[in-house]
Amino acid sequence: MFIFLILIACINGILLSNNYLINASLGTKVGSLKSSFINHLVGALFAFTLLLIGIHTGNLSLNNIPLYLFIGGMLGIIAVFLGNYAIPIIGAMTLNILLISGQLITSAIIDHIGFMSTEAIELTPLRIAGIIFIILGAFLVLLKKQKNIPAMLEVGKQGTVS
């Protein structure tokens, strides 16, 4: 089970990369925020179609769901908006490292306090070391990319024009 979870997590990373590149590419045509809007619209229609043809993984009843559980989609758009603002000023490489660090550190806090979860995962020294290693590794991978980044940065820049 554990190996299976690791495996689909890896597949998710590949999906995320492709999603990022497609959206960046679409962003050069219509602007990043609009690109993200289209991304969500197509996703909503796709998920709706899957539900319509009878694929269910639970029960879509909107009763008794705390309202704050609906803010996920909104936060995603705000993140795109912020990244859009930051990229022409600090560049794609710095932005990516900030995104990764911010995500990991916040996740560790979320796990530690058991935010929205039945069980907390304590932030041990070993886990702190793990987070530092991942951020360091990401830094090393992304650092040399600077030469390559103009292409991606340009994507972001053009995306903010319109």
Binding site: I71, G73, A79, L82, L98
Partner: peptide, 13 residues
Amino acid sequence: GILAGMLTAVAIR
């Protein structure tokens, strides 16, 4: 940039 990362983590959870 940091805030965007933080919001993403919250959104994921």
